[in-house]
Structure formats: structure tokens, C-alpha cells
Design a protein around this nucleic acid. Structure first.
Length: 606
DNA sequence: TTAGGGTTAG
């Protein structure tokens, strides 16, 4: 009976004395189990460890199992595993449950995925049979590592041991393949071969498509799910909303919101966060703010999503005041929230504010800046045209700049005429990263601006020789719940003749209004007239022409560009907004541009 | 006595 008292009091010290004088092994074992049940901190576990050894319970399976699960609950598995696998341990006593506990504990940690798999191997070598609970943990570890070969071999074992008909195991397998680079096809194969699919299976596959950026496939699969009559839940809807966010499909997103309401799907905090993120990234930041204001139980993710949304729309001052409000309500900013805040400063030209927040992050919030934070600062300085200061900042950073940071600096060099500097940094970058195509594109762009056509042509040769290609720019537009995608010079659309006539008309009208084509944007060595022609075939202009043809006069036009919008399209869109009296909302890779009456909300910071 | 899918940034 004294053990119940131990459980209640949680006083390990006095209880240990009782245990030490236990009359026999059975009593000692019971006492230890009760103590472990009561243990709620790692130091106490350390104390108990000593007593387990002292009492000769070193190889007692019950005690070991309890010890392991306690360590797992206390996230102290690193402390427990040497004890379990010490040279004098009787590992032949260990059963599946014990191994599952260890594997689960390691699979849950960020650093222990490899160890989880090591223990899985120890399990197999020790002839302990894995059971249906083992594989979800093992597959989770594989998913975390993103190692396709490893995942494929575990898949083999799943089949060998006959767990490939278990829906839990198969769902985790779909998820695992989705997390491995190049595994999406295998995920789909597992998914297609499953005897029965539940909402988790569909969510895993839809989420997987979103993860790899196949958002239209994700939406199609969601439609298929509805057709076969599996009821989606709030988790499914989070993934579907992510797909809308990725596509910039506001109309579809709105439909998803009404579907959630109509079906009575529970609006969890995570689902509300996904809705906020969708609205702010699809251009309706007001709606995002409204949802944010009405939601209960906001988390740091809710705040960050809405701050980020404001940042993308160039509403830096509002983003800052929301950040202050967040701190005021007692939510501590994390490293991600600071990235949103810095991007707000960056996109609104608030350099001094950004610098002071950077100091505050380190001094007041004790967040160690990561490369992403340094990257934001470099971006901020570069956008403001302070290229030299950005260079000095990089030289003073305590960590090595990564290629992303260097590419930011190089783009700024090109934009602000520091061509020699840009050239030398890019050459250095190419030496370190010879197979990264974007480095060659940068150098090629710099040579184009320097009008060094021969050097530029040479770069193209090298790229062709190594089989590298430039990522084609594309622009998406949503019309009547359909998504249309245009690439430069696209002729695949059935209206293409009308679209090109419209583009030509737009060009004539713009010139009349004073537009001068930014021909230095064109990366080909061709004469000026052809350059203008190439600019007019940019995917942004095709999508805008398509919208002008197919939407009523005066209605807003929303387009989504996969890369950063080019200087010429930016300038042209200002003219188009005025000439055709249209509000044009462009989402590019970095941010939103609201064009109205010949002006852009970004005030040319982008 | 143990199991599966989801949200912010880069």
C-alpha cells in the first residue's frame, strides 16, 4: 500500500529509502515501478537509475520497460539508451514493446532519426519480431530523414512481415514516401494499391502533393476524394487550403471556406491558421485580418501568418504594430516571427527599424540569429540600394554566408550597377557550386547588363554543355474556378491569337501613354525591336491580356508569377492599370504588388 | 501497453 502513497507524494528521496530496505526482489521491483510511475523529471530518473543497479534490477524486463517509457515521456531517451544496451545487459529479454518505445522516442526527436533506425536493426538482429506498431515509428524516422533508399528497404520489410495490409502502416508509408525526395510516385503507387482508403490516406496523399508543389494534383485528388464519398476532416482541409495558397487561387480558397462551413468541419486553430495564410497569400489580406481578429486561441503561427501577409503586401508599419501587439498579449516571438517582421521592414524600406529589431531579437529575446535572419538583413540593405553596406554586413557575420545570401547580394549588384563586384562574387560562387544553374543565370544577366555579349554567350555554352536550363517564368490566373498557366511566348491556349492581338494593342496604348520598354531586361543578343517583342511575350503580359479579354471592364485582375516579376513587366503593369482602369494584383515569388491608377503599392521596393 | 495525415519562414 505504501506504493500508492509514493505515487501521490512524488517524493522520490524518502521513497528510495523505503525501496532500499525492501525485503525481497519482488517488493523492490514493485517499489521501483511505482517510483518510475511517479517520476516527473530527468534528475529524479538519474537517481532512480542508480537504485535500479543497486537493487540488482539491471535485467528486470518490467523495470526496464517502465524506465524506458518514463525516459521517453521525459524526452530523455539519450540518457536511458546506454543503460539499456550496456555490455552486461541481457538484451535477449527485450521484447517488441520495449523496442517500440525506444524507436518511438528516437523517431520523435529531431536528432535521433538515425538512432531509431539503429535500434530497429538491433531489434531485427536480436530476433525480436517487429509488430504492426513498430512500423509507423520506423517509417516516421525514415520520413524525417527523407532517405528514399532507406524508406524503400523498410517498405520491403513491411511486405516481408505481412503488414502491408494494415491501413495505419500503409498510411504512414504514403507519408514517408511523400517526405523523401523523388518518392512521390512510390507514394502514389502504395496509395493506389491500398485495399481501403480512409480520410487519413487521402490527407497523406493530398498533403504529399502539396509538399512537392504539385498543387493542382492535390486539388484534383481532393475532388476525387469527394467523388468516392470519403468525408474529409479538418486535416484534409488544411492541405487543400495549402494547395490554394500555393496556386494563389482565391476563388477556390473561398469555395473551400464555404465548404468547411457547410460540412460543419471543425475549425481548429490549425485550420483557422491555414485559412488566414490562404487569404493573405491569395491577396485578400483584409479578410485574413478579419478572421484573425475573430479567432480564439491564436498561436504564434496565427500571428506570424498575418504579420507575414501584411509584409508581403508592403504594409510594413501595420506588420510592426501587430508584432508589438503580439508581445503585448504575452506571446513571445520565435525565430520565424522575426523573419516575418524583417521581411515587413525589408519590403517597406524600413531599414533603421529592421536594424533595431535585429538587435532586440538577440538582446531581449535571446534568439541566436540563423542564416535566414542574416539573409533578411542583407535583403533589406540590398532593396534599399545599400549594396556596400550589405557587403560589409556579410563580411562581419559570425557564420559563413550561404549561396542564397550571396545571390541576394549579386542581384542587388546587378540592379544597382555594381557590376564588377557582382561579377567577381558570382565567379567565386560558381567555383563553389558548379552545378547550380541559377549562378550561371546571374552571371549571364550581369554580362547582359554590361553588354558583354560574347562572355554571355560563353556562359550559355557552358550551361548547354552541362545540361542546365533556366527555370521558365510562368504566370497563373484563375477564371471561373479553372486555373490557366502561361509561359513566355505561350501559344498553347486556344485563344492565343486574340491574346497576342491584345498584347500588341496594349503595347501601342502604353507607348502612347509614355511607356519605355526596359530592354536591358532581355537576355538575348538581338536588336532593340526584337527585344521589345520578347518583352511583350512575357508570361505576365499574356496573362493580363487574357484577363482583359475575358473579365468584365472595371473588375480587378489577380495573377500569380512563379518568379520575381521583371522590371519591365512591373513598369508596364503600372501603365496597364491606368489605361484600362483595372486594379491588378500580382503575387510574385516574394510579395504582392497592387497596381492602381498607374502606381504600385510596393513603391518600387521589391 | 504501444499506431497514421495538417499550419508560419527559408
Amino acid at each position: 500500500m505504501q506504493y500508492h502513497a509514493i505515487k501521490r507524494s512524488k517524493l522520490i528521496g524518502p521513497a528510495l529509502k523505503t525501496t532500499a530496505i525492501a525485503a525481497n526482489k519482488r517488493e523492490a521491483e514493485q517499489s521501483c515501478l511505482a517510483l518510475l510511475q511517479a517520476c516527473d523529471a530527468v534528475p529524479k530518473l538519474a537517481q532512480l537509475h542508480g537504485h535500479v543497479l543497486k537493487l540488482g534490477l539491471r535485467n528486470n524486463p518490467l523495470v526496464l520497460t517502465k524506465f524506458t517509457s518514463t525516459a521517453s515521456d521525459l524526452k530523455a531517451i539519450d540518457y536511458a539508451s546506454p543503460f539499456l544496451f550496456a555490455p552486461d545487459a541481457d538484451t535477449h529479454l527485450y521484447d517488441s514493446f520495449l523496442f517500440n518505445t525506444i524507436i518511438r522516442a528516437y523517431a520523435q526527436t529531431s536528432h535521433g532519426k538515425h538512432k531509431a533506425l539503429c535500434f530497429y536493426n538491433v531489434m531485427l538482429e536480436g530476433a525480436v519480431l517487429p509488430n504492426k506498431f513498430t512500423y509507423p515509428f520506423v517509417l516516421k524516422a525514415c520520413a524525417g530523414l527523407g532517405d528514399l533508399n532507406l524508406g524503400t528497404s523498410v517498405h520491403g520489410s513491411v511486405v516481408k512481415f505481412g503488414f502491408d495490409d494494415d491501413v495505419h502502416v500503409c498510411n504512414t508509408m504514403v507519408h514517408m514516401y511523400c517526405c523523401c525526395s523523388g518518392g512521390i510516385e512510390s507514394a502514389r503507387k502504395v496509395f493506389d494499391e491500398m485495399p481501403k482508403l480512409d480520410s487519413v490516406s487521402w490527407s497523406a496523399m493530398i498533403g504529399g502533393y502539396v509538399r512537392v508543389g504539385w498543387s493542382t494534383d492535390a486539388v484534383d485528388l481532393f475532388r476525387e476524394m469527394q467523388m468516392v464519398g470519403v468525408r474529409p476532416d479538418e486535416i484534409t482541409m488544411v492541405s487543400v487550403l495549402s494547395a490554394c495558397t500555393d496556386l494563389g487561387a482565391l476563388e477556390l480558397g473561398k469555395w473551400v471556406e464555404s465548404y468547411i462551413d457547410k460540412e460543419g468541419i471543425q475549425k481548429t486553430v490549425e485550420l483557422s491558421n491555414a485559412l488566414i495564410d490562404m487569404f493573405s497569400k491569395c491577396g485578400d489580406v483584409e479578410k485574413a485580418l478579419k478572421l484573425f481578429r475573430y479567432m480564439s486561441g491564436r498561436t504564434i503561427v496565427s500571428w506570424t501568418s498575418v504579420i507575414d501577409g501584411l509584409a508581403m503586401h508592403g504594409r510594413g508599419m501595420e506588420a510592426m504594430s501587430l508584432f508589438e501587439e503580439m508581445i503585448g498579449t504575452g506571446v513571445a516571438p520565435d525565430d520565424v516571427a522575426f523573419i516575418g517582421l524583417f521581411s515587413a521592414c525589408s519590403h517597406s524600406g524600413l531599414v533603421e527599424k529592421g536594424k533595431s529589431y535585429f538587435s532586440s531579437m538577440v538582446e531581449n529575446f535571446h534568439i541566436v540569429p540563423k542564416i535566414e535572419h542574416y539573409g533578411c538583413m542583407v535583403d533589406m540593405l540590398c532593396r534599399a540600394g545599400l549594396v556596400k553596406e550589405a557587403l560589409e554586413f556579410i563580411q562581419k557575420m559570425p557564420i559563413e554566408p550561404n549561396p542564397i545570401v550571396l545571390r541576394t547580394l549579386i542581384s542587388a549588384c546587378r540592379a544597382h550597377g555594381e557590376l564588377k563586384l557582382g561579377e567577381s562574387i558570382t565567379k567565386e560562387l560558381i567555383r563553389n557550386e558548379p552545378m547550380q544553374e541559377s549562378n550561371y543565370v546571374l552571371l549571364s544577366n550581369i554580362y547582359a547588363k554590361m553588354t558583354h555579349w560574347e562572355k554571355k554567350a560563353k556562359i550559355r555554352e557552358v550551361m548547354d554543355k552541362r545540361g542546365m536550363k533556366k527555370i521558365p517564368g510562368s504566370t497563373m490566373i484563375e477564371l471561373d474556378h479553372e486555373i490557366y498557366e502561361f509561359v513566355a511566348g505561350d501559344k498553347s491556349h486556344k485563344q492565343y491569337k486574340q491574346i497576342y492581338e491584345m498584347v500588341d494593342e496594349m503595347g501601342r496604348e502604353m507607348k502612347r501613354a509614355g511607356y519605355i520598354p526596359t530592354t536591358s531586361e532581355v537576355l538575348l543578343d538581338i536588336d532593340e525591336e526584337d527585344k521589345e517583342d520578347a518583352l511583350n511575350r512575357h508570361s505576365e503580359k499574356l496573362a493580363i491580356a487574357f484577363a482583359l479579354l475575358n473579365t468584365p471592364p472595371g473588375t480587378p485582375i489577380r495573377i500569380v508569377k512563379n518568379l520575381r516579376v521583371c522590371d519591365d513587366c512591373h513598369s508596364a503593369t503600372k501603365f496597364i492599370s491606368k489605361i484600362y482602369n483595372r486594379e491588378i494584383v500580382v503575387r510574385d515569388r516574394n510579395r504582392f504588388h497592387h497596381f492602381k491608377d498607374g502606381m504600385c503599392s510596393c513603391r518600387d521596393f521589391w
